[in-house]
Amino acid sequence: MIGKYEFDNYEDFATAKESLPKSEGEYIHNHTIVELGIIDGKYCVDVAWSRDLETEPELFEAKKIDLDNEGVHSFLGVIYTENKI
């Protein structure tokens, strides 16, 4: 499932990312996070959540945006508008 997010700044994204599960200081999730960078003043991130995700992390969910098109970035072969989280 694909999620597109707009954080106010990089620090907010870093905080959200920090909330993902770790073991011995290393991230252990299998999600694919693509940092798009700053677009229109927002720090934009696309995430392909792995299938074992049960609930969208709260700090991400709060920054989720809903586009009616694919945006500027895609996960290969995945149609965002048909696979939104």
Partner: peptide
């Protein structure tokens, strides 16, 4: 290759486990 024939987006191949 990470390539979609009609996409002008940039594309990501997700991690593969």
């Amino acid at each position: 290759l990470i390539w979609a024939p009609t996409s002008t987006n940039f594309n990501t191949r997700a991690v593969e486990l």
